[in-house]
Write a protein that binds this DNA or RNA. Structure first.
Length: 559
RNA sequence: UGCCGAAUGGUGUAAUGGUAGCACGACUGACUCUGACUCAGUUAGUCUAGGUUCGAGUCCUAGUUCGGCAGCCA
């Protein structure tokens, strides 16, 4: 959305200032950014912020953005994820200039590593992973040099080549940078550059058995692609000196610079890929795109729009201070978008039958309903009305609380787009549940007739019983049960009420509703036709977000 | 407690030495054939202590609190 973007562009932040200065000073001719996901899981709402920042900033300054898969760890990666990630980025509305894989640069990276060895800046280490950890030192003590640190260049070269040829088992040797074991920055204590892993890579197959580590690979990837501003999240801050070291010592032609911003934390939401993957693997959710998941695919299936997600992350701004954004802000942006776009419809989620006793038994009428009051030019549609209808259980009470404007014995309400009805009676079953409500209607009050002699406090929605279509409604609450505790057994971390399924009715006007179509069910909320489970015969609607309500039934006027 | 970083209403974010503003939330009220939307209003903030300055959220010093870093993960 152009308007959204240009509005946001006016507000500056430290990254836009840097980019703008670099351009002005001629340090870069064209800004090039990248979004570098590892294909080891699905993208989530947190990634949306990163995607937005990288693509949007480049766009604002007339630059380019690459989508690059940071696939340097074959053990965790899979082409299922590379496909899903592309779909999600595209769905969010971003077009990448280049589509790259870190694995395409393996040979170049290998050559750069050799250059490092020849300069005496890297060495092959025989220490085991445990020994390496033990000699790294701690936060307060410096580490010790490896006994293999001073091998000759020739020996290192030979050993590194043998690593590549597969002469060693996993973990037997690593290539390390020779920097400073006493550095207060742990990342500079001779970090591992290459490890041995006899694993099949989704892209390179079994061509390689040594794989570069992130700290070595990432700066090289950026430099190779001509990235100018490498924007990442704060947890990489401590890697920056190493990033610059790699660029310099590998003598890269292009010199990219890394800048870090605070990642998105959403209240009541866990975004760790590890946790999300466990939920998927242990089948506690219906896949990565379960509508309760904070994944892009989950949000899509739930019914969120890319526009809403973009305007949400855009409003967040780019800062270094980290905080936690209220989920309500995301909901606000969804409502804002859907209010304008979603056609209105009437649906009854928890039905109770209403008989209009003085309405002719053989009569049906077609009532007019506005498609969307925010877009009057869309006009109206016809909805059927007759003697028996369904209304929602919440709209009738035998004993109304204060300020209750809906149906109760003796009260008159408006049936939206139809008539005024007055409750005359109701029927209970053996257990005391109200199963049927009786009303009378006033023919003079027909919607659109201009009747003004009487006013009524409440308007309720309904669905004609004769023509109603059964439908399933999936009502969602936060996935997480209370405060997240990683120690807890997985099942206990999720809210048992995170999904509630209700069987109710939609009107015949929705009989052709298609997957991913979004509707506002009047007085309920916004719903999406589920793309997986909805069928032409049995429609399934996902609650995207409910409408706001200033009526609190639990907290009546007295306070 | 070694290094790095951050602290502005309940939440997010602006103010680049000169009137602390915006958005969300919450609460009032108006409007309403959606208790929605919209509109009007209320609420509430510069972590602490010193210092520099005519003037400090902003600069300096010290402290406090919070976050990140000890994968052959990214």
């Amino acid at each position: 959305m152009e308007t959204t973007s240009s509005t946001t562009a006016s507000s500056s932040d430290f990254i836009r200032e840097i980019v703008s200065d670099d351009l002005k000073a001629g340090r870069v001719q064209e800004v090039v950014t990248r979004f570098p996901p590892e294909p080891n899981g699905y993208l989530h709402i947190g990634h949306a912020k990163s995607i937005f920042i990288n693509f949007e900033i480049a766009r604002e300054y007339g630059g380019k953005t690459n989508l690059r898969f940071d696939d340097t760890n074959p053990l965790k990666e899979d082409s299922e994820y590379v496909n899903a990630i592309q779909e999600d980025v595209a769905w969010l509305g971003f077009k990448w200039d280049g589509l790259y894989f870190a694995s395409d640069y393996f040979e170049e990276m290998y050559q750069r590593a050799i250059r490092l060895i020849k300069k005496g800046k890297a060495y092959v280490d025989d220490l085991s992973a445990d020994q390496l950890r033990e000699t790294r030192g701690t936060l307060t003590e410096s580490g010790q040099n490896s006994p293999y640190r001073d091998r000759s260049v020739e020996e290192n070269l030979a050993l590194f080549e043998r690593m590549r040829k597969g002469e060693f088992r996993d973990g037997e040797r690593v290539l390390r940078a020779k920097i400073d074991m006493a550095s207060p920055n742990l990342n500079m204590r001779d970090p591992v550059l290459y490890r041995i892993s006899h694993a099949v890579h989704h892209n390179t197959g079994d061509k390689w058995c040594i794989y570069p580590m992130y700290a070595f690979a990432h700066p090289l990837e950026d430099a190779i692609e001509g990235v100018t501003h490498s924007l990442c999240t704060l947890e990489f801050k401590d890697q920056r000196p190493l990033y610059d070291w790699v660029i310099q010592e590998c003598e890269m032609e292009n010199v990219p610079h890394q800048y870090e911003f605070g990642r998105l934390n959403l209240s009541n939401t866990v975004m760790s890929k590890r946790y999300l993957k466990r939920l998927v693997d242990e089948k506690l959710v219906d896949g990565w795109d379960d509508p309760r998941m904070p994944t892009i695919s989950g949000l899509r299936r739930r019914g969120f729009t890319p526009e809403a997600i973009r305007s949400f992350v855009s409003e967040l701004g780019i800062t270094i201070a980290g905080g936690e954004v209220d989920y309500k802000l995301l909901e606000h942006h969804v409502r804002l978008d859907l209010n304008v776009r979603a056609p209105r419809a009437m649906a009854v989620i928890k039905p109770i039958k209403v008989v209009i006793t003085n309405y002719p038994e053989d009569l049906t009428e077609m009532m007019e309903m506005e498609i969307n009051p925010e877009q009057p030019e869309l006009g109206t549609k016809k909805v059927q009305f007759s003697r028996e209808i369904y209304i929602d259980r919440d709209d009738f009470m035998e004993v109304p609380p204060p300020k209750y404007h809906r149906l109760y014995p003796g009260n008159e309400v408006r049936l939206k787009n139809a008539y005024f009805v007055t409750c005359t009676d109701f029927v209970k079953d053996d257990e005391g549940n109200v199963v049927e409500v009786h009303c009378t209607y006033d023919p003079e009050t027909r919607s659109g007739s201009g009747f003004t002699a009487r006013k009524v406090k409440g308007t309720i929605h309904w669905v004609d019983a004769k023509s109603a279509i059964q439908a399933e409604f999936r009502l969602y609450e936060p996935l997480l049960a209370g405060d997240f505790d990683e120690e807890l057994p997985l099942e206990q971390t999720i809210n048992p009420d995170s999904i509630k399924i209700e069987h109710g009715y939609i009107g015949a006007d929705l009989k052709d509703a298609k997957p991913q179509e979004k509707y506002q069910f009047v007085r309920h909320g916004y719903f999406n036709v589920d793309p997986k489970d909805s069928t032409p015969e049995k429609k399934v609607f996902n609650l995207i977000v409910s409408l706001k309500s200033s009526f609190k039934i639990d907290n009546p006027a007295g306070k």
